[in-house]
Structure formats: structure tokens, C-alpha cells
């Protein structure tokens, strides 16, 4: 693996190898006082975030540091990007400065693909940390790690992804990865928030959440941006919440073993009720913890080779 740009086309064995590595790293670090492995000593990892992010950037930074890599954070605001430098020049500059890996988040779909093309002749790997409405592959991997942990596996499990699928890079990455790993995925959203051509995706779709709940092994809630109302995607936060919010009543309709995921940041009260988010059925903090291990595993596979 040279870059991680998408989960579309990521093979079953490849994905499983990353998840297994993440598990192994988690076990290795469990209970240790000093959480530091020497694996990536001397390697330089640069995060380049063109969009605000706390959890993803911090997660990658910690992942790099726990692997002993030198981690440098570049944010668009405080760099030459603010002076109008092109993405291509910034990428070539960071590569020439010695980056072994560039982790990029960008509002334009495909920006990491472009970076990967421009850096093809260098030794710099590219990791997509979220591009526009396209993909967020490490989020899907950490979701998969969490589902494996909670459900004992993914093959044959029925998983609903609920909410703003249209604008969600998390949904796209999850659809590809979960399909590859053998899950049944159902997308639940109002028609306005389902992508055009979704009938070609390896999923089923539903407008009604309640009828889906009893058959699910997991429900993945997506963030709904309040500004979507201005685009007339739905009439009001209230109506959205009534139809698609995961409240306690709906939680009770899920089978006992079913798990609740949310990529964060959560809009409590709108898409998920506070008692649900804080219930033991929710794996939301597990997702964050697994995120670090999954990102360590990704860096490991990209920069250090196959065997651990």
C-alpha cells in the first residue's frame, strides 16, 4: 500500500490486515505506562488540514507520536496557503522538506488523489483524512474496528447508516468498506439526503427508520448540519429529529446486542438524544480510542512494510 485515498477498491485482505494490526497495537499498548513504540523513529509525518478538525487531526498526531514518528502539523490558516500558494506547490514543498507521509484533509473531493499524482515520483505517501463529500477512509476503518470489537465480526451483520448520506464522506467510505467486509448496509434518510444514483451502490435504502430498527446489529448516525435546512433538504430540525433522531424510544426498538455509532461531532438533541449518546449501547468513545490504533496501523502499513 503506497497511499490510502479511499476504501473503494480496498481489498478484503488488505482491510483485514490493517484492522488486525490495529488490534495487535491496541493489545500491545494496553496497560502500558509509556505508550510509545519505536517503529517509525526517524520518519516524518505531516498533517495538512484545509478544514477545521479536532478529533481527526489529534488522532493522527497521537498515532504518529505513539509510533515515534516526527509529526508536524500544518494548518491552512497559518501557512503559505493563506498567502495563496497552490495545493500542488504546498505538497511539493512539504515532500521536498522530507515528509514521508502527508495526511490531508481538504474541502474539495479528490484533492488527496491530486496530491498522490503530484507526489508519484517522490517517496511521500498520502493519507486522505477526509475530502469534500468523497471519502474518509480511516473513519470507516475505525468504525469497522469498533464493530468487530462489539459484534465479534462484520460478515452478515446488518448495519444502518442514518442521516445526511448525500453530503457525507463518512457514509461513502463506510458503504465501500462494510460491503467489502460482507455486511448488509441500509441507508436511511429522507429522499433529499440520499445521493443520486444510490441504487447502484451495494446497499438498500429506506425512508423510514422505525421499521428498520428491530433488524439491525448496528446503527451509525451521521452528523446533520443545521445549515442544510437553508438548502431545503428538510423543513426543520424538529421535523428531522422526529423522523430520524435516535431517541430512547428508538433505542429500545433495537435488539439488545445492537450498537450505536456516531463519527462526531454530535448534535445532541437533533440527531441523537443525550441519554442515547451516553448509554452503554453507544460505542462513541470506543470509536475515538480505536481511531488512534487504526491510524497507527495505517501509518505502519504505509511506512514500515507488512510485518509487525
Amino acid at each position: 500500500m503506497r497511499d490510502l485515498l479511499t476504501t473503494d477498491g480496498l481489498g478484503h485482505d488488505e482491510a483485514t490486515a490493517v484492522l488486525d494490526t490495529a488490534d495487535e497495537l491496541k493489545r500491545t499498548l494496553l496497560g502500558r505506562e509509556v505508550r510509545k513504540l519505536p517503529t517509525l523513529r526517524g520518519r516524518t509525518v505531516i498533517t495538512m488540514f484545509y478544514e477545521n478538525s479536532t478529533r481527526t487531526r489529534v488522532s493522527f498526531e497521537i498515532a504518529g507520536k505513539w509510533m515515534s514518528a516526527d509529526v508536524v502539523n500544518v494548518s491552512a490558516g497559518g501557512s503559505s496557503v493563506g498567502k495563496g500558494e497552490s495545493l500542488r506547490d504546498t505538497a511539493l514543498t512539504l515532500s521536498a522538506a522530507g515528509a514521508d507521509c502527508v495526511i490531508v484533509r481538504h474541502p474539495a473531493s479528490g484533492a488527496p488523489h491530486r496530491l498522490s499524482g503530484w507526489l508519484a515520483d517522490t517517496r511521500t505517501s498520502v493519507v486522505n483524512a477526509g475530502d469534500g463529500m468523497h471519502e474518509h477512509p480511516t473513519q470507516a476503518l475505525l468504525d469497522a474496528a469498533t464493530l468487530r470489537e462489539r459484534l465479534g465480526g462484520i460478515e452478515g451483520r446488518r448495519i444502518a447508516i442514518v442521516g445526511d448520506v448525500l453530503h457525507s464522506r463518512v457514509a461513502r467510505s463506510n458503504v465501500h468498506l462494510l460491503a467489502t467486509l460482507g455486511a448488509e448496509v441500509v441507508l436511511v434518510a429522507p429522499p433529499t439526503l440520499l445521493p443520486h444514483g444510490v441504487e447502484h451502490w451495494p446497499v438498500t435504502t429506506a425512508f423510514d427508520l422505525d421499521s428498520q430498527l428491530p433488524g439491525l446489529d448496528a446503527v451509525m448516525m451521521l452528523r446533520v448540519q443545521a445549515e442544510r435546512m437553508h438548502g431545503a433538504f428538510f423543513p426543520s430540525a424538529r421535523e428531522y429529529s422526529i423522523a430520524y433522531g435516535l431517541n430512547e424510544k428508538r433505542l429500545a426498538m433495537l435488539p439488545d446486542h445492537a450498537v450505536v455509532l456516531h463519527p462526531g461531532p454530535m448534535l445532541r438533541g437533533m440527531e441523537i438524544a443525550s441519554p442515547v449518546a451516553d448509554s452503554p449501547r453507544a460505542a462513541i468513545t470506543d470509536q475515538v480510542a480505536n481511531g488512534v490504533h487504526v491510524r497507527m496501523a495505517v501509518l505502519y502499513h504505509l511506512l514500515a512494510g507488512e510485518e509487525l
Binding site: 473503494d8 473531493s109 479528490g110 475530502d131 469534500g132 463529500m133 468523497h134 471519502e135 464522506r169 461513502r172 445521493p195 443520486h196 444514483g197 444510490v198 447502484h200 451502490w201
Partner: peptide, 18 residues
């Protein structure tokens, strides 16, 4: 809008031009 609204743009994350 960035690209023809269709299956491909949806999958690749381009905002659709219907």
C-alpha cells in the same frame, strides 16, 4: 455544482449539476 449529477459524481463526491 462541480460535475454531472449521476451515479459517478455521487460516488466520487462531486456536487451534482443536474
Amino acid at each position: 455544482a462541480q460535475a454531472h449529477e449521476g451515479e459517478r459524481a455521487s460516488r466520487l463526491g462531486y456536487a451534482g449539476w443536474p
